[in-house]
Amino acid sequence: MTGLDRFLDSFFNLRVAVEYLPKIIDGFWLTILLAFCIILSGLAAGLALAVLRSLGIRPVNWLIIFVVDLFRALPPLVIIVLLYFGLPAAGLSISGFASAWLSLALVLMAFSEEIFWAGITAVPRGQWEAARSTGLTFAATLGHVVLPQAVRMVVPPLTNRTIAITKGTALASVVAVPEILGAAQAGVSFSFNPTPLTLGALAYVVLFFPVVILGRWIETRFAWKR
């Protein structure tokens, strides 16, 4: 066999590809489900914390800042491993899926809180004053005047951060979740051929390439007015 044949036989082996494609596709849907759960709960929790922080209750804010710092400083894989292997020691068993979901949602919560908060503080004081002077309550000012401006301002950084954290779904393979990477690795060890890994990488490209392009587009679309 020539080098090229060997290479093709290893990485683009059609027989192996056909055999393991269904597993990879199952993994693909599982990755999407996991990503969806993370994004929804992570962003919601981040926004909730940012709003809570805007109430200006000192001890609460310190706690929020600490939690945010904690989850910005810890590597996501460390959190996943800690939950998955650590919680059983406390008598709580947790599935791999749940530990990955919870971990990455916490990380996204931390990053998005920081970004939402930056957006809220970037809305000029005059906006608050104008809204309150017309008799709007604190909540109405926040909801109708401040947040719409803040959210628009933070769309680009938030999109990029969300994409980066969502790519962490691959980490779930470490705690035995058969998402794309997990399915691909299982395929490699059964077939002694790396083609499932090629498929897995392609699946990620299919999934995230459009998202990365979307992020690029959003970045120019919502560009900061200088």
């Binding site: 790519k167 990477l181 691909a184 990620y204 490209v205």
Partner: peptide, 24 residues
């Protein structure tokens, strides 16, 4: 740039570590 931003780093790492030996 977009390709390597789209592939999760762990996937890339596994691909290099577990895949390249198959290519000799």
């Amino acid at each position: 740039v977009d390709f390597f931003r789209a592939v999760p780093p762990l996937v890339l790492l596994i691909f290099v570590y577990a895949g390249l030996p198959f290519a000799g």
